[in-house]
Design a protein around this nucleic acid. Sequence first.
DNA 1: CGGTATTTTGAGTATCGTCAAGGCCAGTGG
DNA 2: CCACTGGCCTTGACGATACTCAAAATACCG
Lengths: 260, 260
Amino acid sequence: MDDIPETAERRGRTECGLQRLAAFGTLDEQVRHDLQAICSRRAFRSGQTIAEAGTRPGYIGIVGDGILRMQKTLLDGRQHVVGLLVPGDMFGRLFDGAMHFNVEAAIDSEVLTFDRRRFEKIVLDDPALDRLLLLNLLGELDRARDWMVILANPKVRGRLAGFLLLLCSRFRTIDHLVTVTDRVIRVRNPLSRPDVAHLLGTRIESVSRALHALADDGVIDILRPDLIEIRCLDSLLDEVGEPDLLDQATLIALRQNAAE
Amino acid sequence: MDDIPETAERRGRTECGLQRLAAFGTLDEQVRHDLQAICSRRAFRSGQTIAEAGTRPGYIGIVGDGILRMQKTLLDGRQHVVGLLVPGDMFGRLFDGAMHFNVEAAIDSEVLTFDRRRFEKIVLDDPALDRLLLLNLLGELDRARDWMVILANPKVRGRLAGFLLLLCSRFRTIDHLVTVTDRVIRVRNPLSRPDVAHLLGTRIESVSRALHALADDGVIDILRPDLIEIRCLDSLLDEVGEPDLLDQATLIALRQNAAE
DNA sequence: CGGTATTTTGAGTATCGTCAAGGCCAGTGG
DNA sequence: CCACTGGCCTTGACGATACTCAAAATACCG
């Protein structure tokens, strides 16, 4: 897993793809240019470590492509997933101390890195960018709270349902991870069974059983262990009980073809 | 609960107590003065609603004294706690849309409110305040992730242990909620049994049993249902398995007298 | 095609949820 | 002062769920 050399790093500077991230489209031309100048695009293979807890990396990262997982190392050495990062999400302790979690690539991914010092300088000079970061953080907070509600579900089945919905919500814009064809939503789960189990506070066997129980009830189809087809969105929503787990935009997007 | 008149509001403007909040001490004199000018101090009785999900209050709130709980309303109408706010914490969707959760007073509390428009204006003009808010959010995020780790604990006992430790960590600076006397830490739990149970994804009976199981093992003492004495901090930490649930400063503070 | 890792299934046990009953405390009214 | 009431917390008994350990099946990779 970890024997992939650090040099699995494509060099950047040229066309780092910042403009493809919608959120940055609203920024001032000059600011985008400044950011472009300190931006490198680096590729990481699935499983590779990108940033480690306890250290303070010299750069700010923005996910360009792929999925990263944030995880904490527990006393017994196991890794506990505390969140996923999708394209557009940031990490890296702006203005702050050491990382509180590791960042690893959940699938092959590309990360835009910005020298932290210089990034902070640009932020201080541009309120719009600053505001962008603040809103990004607020969104991150809401998602963390969504996780809390899901994790507080007393039954594994309910937690798993919430997990699947959250995957759809987060991956909606990433077409190779979520595809909405007529009546069904197909979603790829980038987390291994042990990771899912640990995240949901249970064991791999229980995850497997709950998943197959949902399949037996016709709520989902298991195409592959990591590829799920959602046949009945409403049933899944019922299992969770949280009204605004999926925002309106996501709901509409997921239903758009299903309604035909 | 809700029949306390809205006028349970002490008038503000004069000496709103902003300077007592450590975080704001570093701010520019002028900024503090500007904030003071738009600050009102309002008191809320335990159980009173302070802000509602779906609305966009006209003010930014900072907890002055007491404990607030953030909670989401589920489909079945129950309220689910997703976090606690202690003195110095903020709420109120700066630059952003509607609230995603309710805010209620968990105990009698005092809140500093700032007109949102004017607050945002001051923020835009002062990078230091902006940075303060950003760090506040980062801290909030870390705490939400701590909750996630605790909630992912498969056993009620482990989740409860984590809950108690998190209480200590959050309430450390509030002397009437956490007192460290020789060898023991005494902490008051501002949440009712139903709230704790729901937060931890279990039932009140299980909370009771787990609490008494910890007491039987000599890890804690139950002085009153809402007043816990921690006799063995290390045992509690073991139950959780998360190394940095308590930051170094908190650990030292909690142990300072216990070491004698 | 074989070998390995992952996932699934099965059986037994521990934990937890559920329902019902009992205890404790504060407030009320006799 | 004491019985009564209602809210919350605790305890007990039983059934449902989930965890553990072990084995089988499947997917993955050369």
